[in-house]
Amino acid sequence: MKVPTEPVLRARALGVGYRDRQVIHALDLRIEPGSVTALVGPNGSGKSTLLHALARVLTPTDGVVELDGTPITSQRSVAVARRLALLPQSALAPPGATVTEVVDQGRYPRTGALGMLRRGPDDAVREALGLTGLEDLARTPVAQLSGGQRQRVWIAMALAQQTDLLLLDEPTTYLDVRHQLDLMELVVRLRDEQGKTIVMVLHDLNQAARHADRIVALRDGRILADGPPAEVLTPRVLHEVFDIDALVLTDPVTSRPMFVAR
């Protein structure tokens, strides 16, 4: 397990906005290597926008995102794609494309455009299909899959990129309880076995508390709380971030905090 000394990903005084509206304001964030970080917050709090800026899909209006100590926007796009993979919320399946064909696209940053012209699915693709339990669906058109299966295809594609950093935008949204649990266990396994760094946007706070090492709670584009689940999942933070009156208990299975709305 390699542990870089520099923080792999870092936002400094980051501002992100769209034409008429500033979403993220002067935000500082360090993502520690080999950790699982959950970004939580109400709708419109800027958590997806932050994730997209960290993945350089959105260009900051202020400040900078650094990857391995250099601004991410000054690095070659392919070089960044070898370090960092993004699971977007709204990925599109090309009509008629099979699971393998889509997952195979994850190899682009490694092989380059010319490589993609001649090669077929390799070991990395097969490994990604295996980790997400998609071997049996490998030749099925993505359009025929259920929402949950489709979500696993996008995750497999991100895994096929073989990056140290994985940014996941609401990875559990379309999944049933069983597959949500499978996915969270996969995330923890990738951290433990391959030393990957994972940042994910989650809606389910209990899920975040159960599986993440650290929770970053956003509201109106600012970080209101940041720390281990036990520090963030408190009645005070839940009130400040989500406007809810909550009771925080200890999960009898994991001993992590969990909340119930009053």
Binding site: S77, A79, Y108
Partner: peptide
């Protein structure tokens, strides 16, 4: 024909294509 890999990546959506380094 040489442009095929780019078009394949775009077909996944702009965010995904950027994220792949295209």
């Amino acid at each position: 024909w040489l442009l095929a890999p780019w078009m394949n990546a775009w077909a996944l959506g702009a965010a995904q294509a950027i994220s792949l380094g295209v």
